[in-house]
């Protein structure tokens, strides 16, 4: 018990966990029937797109970078898959793979420019966001496309007689993979580079390689997000990804990963995604107009960061005064 308590207090995601529990309780009070399996499945499906986007962003924030281009990649892969996918399993797999490659390529371009020319990640990915978004418009000038319904049903398939959706599996897979990944060499190196890249480099860590990994991972996950969006929304949009940078950053930051790098992780991000998604539901349950959702999401983002910044300042002052 004590170990759990210690682990919780140490966890950078403690604010997110508390919020999650609080929102969960609120949900149960406001809408007692809501916690059915089918409702959870539905919510999970609605959250996967953001989950992938936020996971990708987390990798980059962990090394102390930032990636705005995920918005472009999501739009691009969403449009591309919606236009070119045929109603044939081979095509679905091929197109999805092509999308992942596009995401990886975008990440590689970001990583290369940031490593080679030492330009701020912000402005580089800002530019590549627009390049990606532009290509999306060229592929699909207007919302639409032709998504095979088999693709939708494949990715929203429910196992065990409709009890468990693929989306829930995806959440679990992401969590398990992360538990594994953060113990690998690259996983630890991500933290090392984000916390102190000079020291990491002096110890023989290949810093550019680690940075490249993070940006490519971000691109790949953004692509997955775009492809999944194609399936759940069953349509493509050249602006499909536009809002995802904001939301992903919000989810990651609420989950306890800071912009300074080296702190946080995907577990927090996963909870952050859930918190962000639950807020809008709670507001609906509480009878607040959905027009208020955005405001609360914004406030949550600012307050979450505010808490961590202010506690850092207090800690520092304590140390100084002694």
């Amino acid at each position: 018990m004590k170990k759990i308590k210690d682990g919780f207090m140490k966890s950078p995601a403690k604010v997110a966990i508390l919020l999650f529990v609080l929102l969960e309780i609120l949900t149960v009070i406001l809408q007692p029937g809501a916690l059915s399996m089918s409702w959870i499945n539905l919510k999970a499906e609605a959250a996967v797109t953001l989950l992938f986007a936020a996971i990708g962003e987390t990798f980059v924030l962990l090394i102390g970078g930032i990636d705005l281009s995920i918005a472009g990649v999501i739009s691009l892969t969403n449009s591309f898959s919606a236009v070119y996918m045929q109603d044939h399993p081979g095509s679905m797999i091929l197109i999805s793979l092509v999308c992942v490659c596009m995401g990886a390529a975008m990440g590689a371009v970001n990583g290369f420019i940031i490593n080679r020319f030492r330009i701020q990640p912000f402005i580089v990915t800002f530019a590549t966001w627009y390049i990606g978004g532009g290509i999306a418009y060229l592929i699909l000038p207007k919302d639409g496309g032709n998504v095979p319904s088999a693709f939708t049903s494949a990715l929203t398939h429910r196992f065990f007689g409709g009890k468990l959706s693929i989306a829930i599996f995806l959440f679990v897979i992401c969590a398990v993979l992360w538990m594994w990944f953060k113990r690998t060499r690259t996983g630890i190196n991500l933290y090392a580079v984000g916390s102190n890249s000079k020291a990491a480099s002096l110890n023989g860590v290949n810093v550019p390689k680690v940075k490249m990994f993070a940006y490519v991972a971000s691109g790949v996950f953004a692509a997955l997000s775009g492809v999944y969006r194609t399936a759940v929304v069953a349509t493509g949009s050249p602006t499909g990804g536009e809002s995802f940078f904001n939301q992903a950053i919000a989810a990651v930051v609420i989950g306890g990963t800071l912009l300074t790098g080296g702190k946080g992780g995907q577990m927090g991000t996963i909870i952050g995604v859930l918190v962000l998604k639950m807020i809008s539901d709670i507001l609906v349950f509480a009878g607040v107009s959905s027009y208020w959702t955005t405001l609360f999401q914004g406030l949550l983002l600012v307050v979450a960061v505010l808490i961590s910044c202010v506690s850092e300042i207090i800690r520092e002052r304590k140390e100084l005064i002694g």
């Binding site: 930032i66 912000f122 904001n246 208020w292 955005t294 405001l295 914004g298 406030l299 983002l301």
Partner: peptide, 16 residues
């Protein structure tokens, strides 16, 4: 607060 998060948050709050 990191400028990116703060101003982005402000943007979302103003929009909301």
């Amino acid at each position: 607060m990191p400028p990116i998060v703060m101003t982005l948050g402000m943007n979302i709050i103003l929009q909301g």
